[in-house]
């Protein structure tokens, strides 16, 4: 209920204070409870995952490694207790070899998130470049790039990703395979973004400020990077965020059909597909990584949703009654119409 009342106030503030776009976006985003909670949760997950098992060669605070074989404690069942709170030897339990599920899950989060960011980064970069070039220059560049996009787009994602995963799995050694998977899959998921960015560029390049810049003698590169891209950044960020949540699920699906991350390394998708038979008998092997997938995916979706609302002023709070009232009053006092129709 609180958001309902504060929202319109914030909207008028923005207009009064003359805030920069970044400030407006930040403020709107922070006003979105679900998105902020998600951001905090996601940061916490990353913090725990990266600090527990270490990163960049630094040791972590957790005593077990994801592939170390240990004695079975308590038949492999989780030792995590809530009342009183105690972690025990293996808070998330162990698999049949005695590997620590907590360490595996954390390692899985690291790998899955890394794959996800790689897919987002690679896909985002290619998408922006292709979209920007074809939208700005038009002509034969657009024709070539867009046909290329069409070529990639007609291949269903899971098909091309599976083939790519298979190729990545054979091409390189086990230790870098997940990253290659990310790169390869990233190289085929940019098509949607490219279309979006192109559309955005097509409309922005006709705007007055671009003409002004051009007349002032700005180079194409400068116009693209300084003038158009900042205006399209909202669309890009939102689209990339949402494609990352799809990416983590794609990784899960690929691992499920055996074409994603390969053992001995682990990813969340690989863990749950390896342990799907244990779903009912040793649920901890399945549920912990599963819960992290769902948690990460939910967080990213809500963050993405929050960003969309923050970047896109047309999506702001709409209230039938108030809109009607405003319309009626606008109708009666001619001249003070729409200040909000951005």
């Amino acid at each position: 209920m609180s958001t309902t009342s504060t929202k319109p106030v914030a909207a008028t503030d923005e207009n009064k204070e003359g805030l920069s776009q970044g400030q407006i976006v930040r403020r709107r985003f922070l006003g979105n409870t679900a998105a902020v909670i998600s951001l905090v949760v996601f940061a916490l997950i990353l913090l725990i995952a990266y600090s527990s098992s270490g990163m960049f060669g630094l040791p972590g605070w957790w005593k077990y490694t994801h592939n170390g074989v240990n004695d079975l404690v308590n038949g492999g069942r989780p030792t995590l207790q809530l009342f009183p709170l105690s972690l025990g030897e293996h808070p998330f339990g162990q698999d049949r070899l005695g590997r620590d599920t907590f360490a595996q899950t954390m390692r899985g989060v690291q790998i899955s998130v890394a794959v996800m960011f790689l897919i987002g980064l690679v896909g985002g970069t290619i998408g922006v470049v292709v979209g920007a070039l074809s939208g700005y220059f038009r002509g034969w560049i657009e024709a070539v790039l867009m046909r290329l996009t069409d070529v990639v787009i007609v291949i269903p994602l899971i098909i091309i990703a599976a083939v790519m995963g298979q190729v990545a799995g054979r091409a390189v050694g086990a230790d870098v395979q997940p990253y290659f998977l990310g790169l390869f899959v990233g190289a085929v998921v940019w098509t949607g973004l490219a279309r979006l960015v192109r559309a955005e560029f097509l409309s922005l390049r006709e705007r007055e400020f671009v003409d002004a810049a051009r007349i002032a003698g700005a180079s194409s590169a400068r116009i693209i990077f300084k003038h158009i891209l900042p205006n399209a950044v909202g669309v890009i960020i939102v689209s990339v965020t949402l494609s990352m949540s799809a990416a983590i699920l794609l990784e899960t699906s690929l691992s499920y059909i055996g074409m994603g991350v390969k053992a001995p390394d682990v990813s969340l998708g690989l863990l749950i597909s390896q342990n799907q038979e244990a779903f009912q008998t040793r649920p901890w092997l399945f549920w912990w990584p599963g819960m992290f997938i769902v948690a990460i995916c939910l967080c990213i979706n809500f963050i993405g949703d929050g960003l969309r609302d923050a970047f896109d002023p047309r999506q702001k709070k709409f209230n039938a009654k108030r809109a009607k009232a405003a319309a009626v009053s606008a109708h009666s006092e001619t001249g003070t119409t729409s200040t909000t129709g951005v």
Binding site: N67, G68, V69, R96, L97, A174, K262, A263, P264, Q274
Partner: peptide, 16 residues
């Protein structure tokens, strides 16, 4: 064979 859990697990134990 990495894709055979028994073999992968036997490998892990032998390696250790």
């Amino acid at each position: 064979n990495k894709d055979n859990p028994n073999r992968a697990d036997a490998y892990a134990l032998i390696q250790e």
